[in-house]
């Protein structure tokens, strides 16, 4: 059911939701950027729709709400363990279509197998999604080519329209709330983009022989292995475990899991000192092919959703979409060598 609602009405609706849940959305952290005087748009709890940033892409994705960068799994003493109290309230997440498609990837990875991720499930089960319509793609977006520009599996869609807001509600419990706030019914189709400035094409004949291409060598030097691409990615789920013992009482401590990055040193270290992907080019190859090749072989769809954040955040101006577009030539190069 579509609605038209004033800003005051939307805020009253959000306050209703906040009775039983927390509303999280991309907001502006003033001065929160790494450079002096720059802001950072990332996720935080909101009470007012005016604080939700629609005209900029968030630096980090909603993913950190389902898979926090650092999460304590349990605390231990000599003979007991205690789990932190899980969040039981609803989490209402504002996100764009590409990110909503990323949820499907996260679900596939964390819920799909025989052993679903208990900690992911704890958070995931209480989540509701509010789709932020995109009227225009940002420069680095390539959602159309990844097929992630349209979503319909939301609880609510929202986008600014003049002084007010257009919403499409699919959550039956929320409809009366919207009506109660003075929402007038009107047909609403969430805005979505149909073209992007950045285009990608993944070659049909892509296979693992592309690993032998010289393409990757360039990134040995250019990539600094900082992991920004992974940490901003809505579909990266890798983590490491840490058991730590409190300094003032080493008989107690906690187990944490923290996000890991396949670009950062240590990711492919094995017992005995073997490092599988020492060169940064090899790490780039591993990441790129996982996002647009081998993940699909297992799941049937690409991991990458084309949000373009990895392009936005790379301090060395390495463009993931550019690499994807070089794969065709790289395939030609390796097939010529094979002959």
């Amino acid at each position: 059911m579509g609605f038209e609602l004033s800003t005051g009405g939307v805020n009253a609706f959000l306050r209703e939701l906040a009775r039983t849940g927390r509303v999280v959305a991309p907001v502006r952290f003033e001065g929160g950027g790494a450079f002096t005087g720059t802001d950072c748009v990332r996720y935080a709890e909101v009470t007012d729709i005016e604080n939700v940033v629609f005209d900029e892409k968030s630096r980090f994705s909603f993913r950190e709400l389902l898979l926090p960068p650092s999460q304590t799994l349990f605390y231990f003493t000599e003979d007991s363990i205690t789990e932190p109290t899980p969040e039981t309230r609803d989490t209402i997440i504002f996100l764009r279509s590409c990110d909503l498609h990323a949820v499907k990837r996260l679900d596939e990875i964390c819920r799909g197998g025989a052993n679903p991720d208990y900690y992911y499930e704890q958070r995931r089960k209480n989540v509701k999604f509010v789709l932020m319509g995109c009227k225009k793609a940002f420069d680095s977006c390539f959602c159309v080519d990844m097929g992630t520009n349209i979503s319909d599996n939301y609880d609510l869609s929202i986008e600014p329209d003049g002084d007010g807001w257009h919403l499409d509600c699919k959550n039956a419990e929320w409809e009366p709330l919207l009506r109660a706030q003075g929402g007038t019914e009107t047909p609403v189709t969430p805005a979505h983009v149909t073209e992007t400035k950045t285009r990608v094409s993944i070659p049909d004949d892509l296979d693992f022989s592309v690993a032998k291409s010289k393409l990757w060598d360039e990134y040995d030097k250019r990539c600094i292995a900082c992991g920004r691409c992974n940490f901003s990615c809505p579909t990266c789920t890798c983590f490491s475990m840490q058991d730590l013992f409190y300094q003032d009482n080493p008989k107690t401590g906690e187990r944490r899991r923290v996000l890991a990055s396949c670009m950062v040193d240590g990711f492919s270290d094995m017992a005995g000192g073997v490092v599988y992907r020492k060169n940064h080019g090899a790490r780039m190859r591993y990441k790129v092919l996982h996002k647009v090749y081998d993940f699909k072989k297992r799941s049937g769809f690409h991991m990458c959703v084309g949000c373009g954040r990895c392009d936005d955040v790379c301090p060395e101006y390495i463009s993931f979409s550019h690499i994807v577009n070089r794969l065709g030539d790289a395939m030609k190069e390796v097939s010529e060598h094979a002959e």
């Binding site: 001065g31 929160g32 630096r59 960068p69």
Partner: peptide, 19 residues
């Protein structure tokens, strides 16, 4: 100097409001 802020890939380090 802020090198930690610049190096951090996940915005765990941030600049202070005050200069």
């Amino acid at each position: 100097c802020g090198e930690c802020v610049l190096a951090c890939p996940d915005a765990a380090w941030m600049r202070s409001k005050e200069t």
